[in-house]
Amino acid sequence: MYAPGSFGGFGRRINMAKNCSGALVILLSAGVTALASQSVSAQSIMNGVWNSVFTEDIGDRGGGPEPGDYTGVPTTAASRSVAQTGDAQDVTLPEWQCRPHLSHYGIRGPGPIAIREELDPQTLAQVALRTHMIFPQRDIWMDDRPEPPEWAAHTWSGFSKGRWIAGDVLRVHTTKYKRGWIKRNGLPTSDEAVFDEYFMRYGDLMTHIGILTDPEYLSEPLVRSTTFEWVTNWPRNLPFACRPLIEVPRSRADLPMLLPNQTAVIQSYAVKNNVPMEAALGSAETLLPEYQDKMATLPPNPPVATIEKLEREQNAENARRPR
């Protein structure tokens, strides 16, 4: 099960090992980027359909995180506040039902990613790599075109420029995103977010390293790795059309959101999973191993029954108000 085309690079026997992506990123940043060189031989190696390998992060990438679960993310006070205002019901708004994934989020989604290349028919130079993840098409421009101006509209996929480095590693730099999210429980990204990616193919496997920076909503870069496996059959459900319908009758312009008194739904994740409330809020500090020592010193959570009672009271109070 091998794709047509040539590929080179780190063609070694790969052993099962997890949680090494941090070291890999450091090495990449220090060494690989210094080796920037265009390589014709690297063309075509990404073509095909790649299925996500779900051996890690199944919770986040499958069912999705619960409200209030911001673990694993270098959050800021601003990003937590936005997330704590978000209501999961907003996906039922007709205008958001067909909202596509941002490319920095979709790459972590459960679906496959299809990659095709566009060649200049006269020179056969690589013009772009087109990718599909669920339904948005993303273009990774390989022809060194200038970035759109500051006044251009932003997009869900952003404006991506790619180049081959170290022979067969695809580096992609993306800007001009729309406002979006890191987790579907509302943890946001701003329209000033920047995504740097490295695609590395090893035979039938491909590793993707994504480095997301956001001056508004991340205190430091969020680095995540994702593994893909090449498949021979093109999934015919890619891409698909989407048409919004009224799923929940509402007054016109009514926006699902949590008001300042709706705190229980956010706290319930920490309480029900016995995670200290401070730790559940994320932040750069919580990502470090040393934080486990601090967790032991944090005050205990209230009982589950207390939070459930508070949640009922808060819901009842909001239900009494007209909407």
Binding site: F10, G11, R12, R13, A17, A23, L24, Y202, G203, T227
Partner: peptide
């Protein structure tokens, strides 16, 4: 460093690149 990096990929691959 490449061989060590490749060991981080989280899955056993059958055979080498060649």
């Amino acid at each position: 460093v490449a061989p060590d990096q490749s060991a981080c990929m989280g899955r056993t691959m059958d055979g080498n690149r060649k």
